[in-house]
Design a binder for these strands. Structure first.
Lengths: 193, 193
DNA sequence: ACTAATTTATGATCTAAGTCATGTTTGAGA
DNA sequence: TCTCAAACATGACTTAGATCATAAATTAGT
C-alpha cells in the first residue's frame, strides 16, 4: 500500500501511544486502519479476564477490515504495542480502493486468505491437540519469520495468550520440548537453529 | 455465482457420492470448487484421530480458495456430506474471474471476511471459554440460520466436532443449558424459540 | 410395525492442565 | 555495577473435561 497516496487524499494520520486502545469490542466499525509506523495487537478478552491474541499487525499492514466489510461490531480490542501512527480509511474510501485498484483488491484477497489459513491451523490445534503440540506449532510458525541464530522476541505469557494456555504450562512445556530437542533455548529465549 | 456461465466456459462438473473425499491434507491445490448441488464438510484430523469441523459448505457456496490463493497445501479433508455435484474451476480461470468480475471479487472479499469472523469467534471460545459457554455460542450461531420452531439438524457428535469437545461432554452440557433455560430441547433436538 | 443402527444418556474413574504459592534468574535503567 | 521489575521456574493441589463402559431412546429402512 502506498501511504503517501492515502495521506494525499486528505486522510488523517492518527497517533496512538503504547498500550492505548484503538477500538474495542462492540464498537461499530467505521474505518480500516493502515499502520504507518509501530505495531498493534488484536486481543479478545473472556468474561473471566483471560486474554487471547487474535493477531499482531506491524508497519505496512492493515487491520479491522473484516468487521467493516460485513458490517458487524468488532469482536476484539486493538491496542498499540508501541507508539504507532495509523491512517484511518473510512468505509467509502476503502470500498473505492477495492473497486478502483485491482492490485489492492487482489492483495486484500490474499491477505484475508493468509489470515484464514492461520486461524484454521490454530483452530485445529486448540480443538484437538495438547499443550506440547500446540506450543510447538506456534513456535515453528513464529520461527518462520526470523533468521537462523535469532531468537523469538516473545514472552512465555504471549505464547500463552496465543495458544490459550497458561504461563506455567507454557514454561513447563517449552522445557519439555527443549529436552526432547524439538526446540532450542538459550537463557530462556527460543532460538532458531 | 452463475453456474451456467461456468459450465458454458467448458468447466467440468464432477460428482461425489456421500462420504467421498474431494481433497485431503497435503495435496497441492489446483481448483476452487463451486457447489452446484449437495453439501460438503471440511474437517481436520489430529494425530490421535480426533476430527474437527472447520466448516460446512452448501449449494451455491464455494470452497478451497484460501489454499489456492496463497499456494499452500490443503490443511483439511473436504468430504461430501451427501451426494454432490461440484464445478472445479482451475487457478487461471479463478484468477480471471476475480480480475474481470468486480462483483465476484467483492463477493469473495465478503465471504472471506465472514469466515474470518467466524473463526475469530471460535478461536476465542476454544482458547478461553469452558464447555457450556463454547456450546452455547455455536448453538446460537447455528440457530441464526433457521426459523423459530425449527430444530437444529445437528447431532451431538457434530457439535462436539465443531467445539473440540467430546460427545459425552456435549450431551451433559446441553442438558445443563436446557435446565438453565438457555436453550430449549424437544426429544433431544435443540429447537429455536 | 419391527428390527437394526444411530444417537442420546448416565455413572465411575482418570488425567492434563489450571491454580496458587513462593522462589530464582535476567535485563533495563539509574 | 547495583537495584528493581519483569520474566522464568518449580512444587503441591484442584478440577474440568476426557475416557470407558453400559444402557435407553430415536430414527431409518424393510
Amino acid at each position: 500500500m502506498n501511504f503517501q497516496k492515502l495521506i494525499d487524499k486528505g486522510l488523517k494520520l492518527k497517533s496512538y501511544s503504547e498500550d492505548s486502545v484503538i477500538y474495542e469490542p462492540g464498537m461499530q466499525p467505521r474505518y480500516v486502519y493502515f499502520i504507518k509506523s509501530g505495531e498493534v495487537r488484536m486481543v479478545t478478552v473472556s468474561d473471566e479476564g483471560k486474554e487471547f491474541i487474535q493477531g499482531v499487525f506491524k508497519t505496512g499492514q492493515y487491520f479491522g477490515e473484516p468487521a467493516l466489510l460485513i458490517d458487524r461490531p468488532y469482536l476484539a480490542f486493538t491496542i498499540a504495542n508501541k507508539d504507532s501512527q495509523v491512517i484511518a480509511v473510512n468505509k467509502e474510501d476503502f470500498f473505492e480502493l477495492i473497486k478502483n485498484e485491482p492490485d489492492f483488491s487482489m492483495e486484500l484477497i490474499r491477505t484475508l486468505s493468509t489470515r484464514l489459513f492461520y486461524k484454521s491451523m490454530m483452530l485445529e490445534e486448540l480443538a484437538s491437540e495438547k499443550a506440547d503440540h500446540r506450543l510447538l506449532t506456534i513456535i515453528n510458525y513464529l520461527l518462520g519469520d526470523i533468521a537462523v541464530g535469532e531468537n523469538l522476541k516473545v514472552t512465555r505469557q504471549e505464547l500463552a495468550d496465543m495458544t490459550g494456555l497458561r504461563v506455567e504450562t507454557v514454561i513447563r512445556s517449552t522445557k519439555i520440548l527443549a529436552e526432547k530437542g524439538l526446540i532450542k533455548t538459550i537463557k530462556g529465549k527460543i532460538v532458531k537453529v
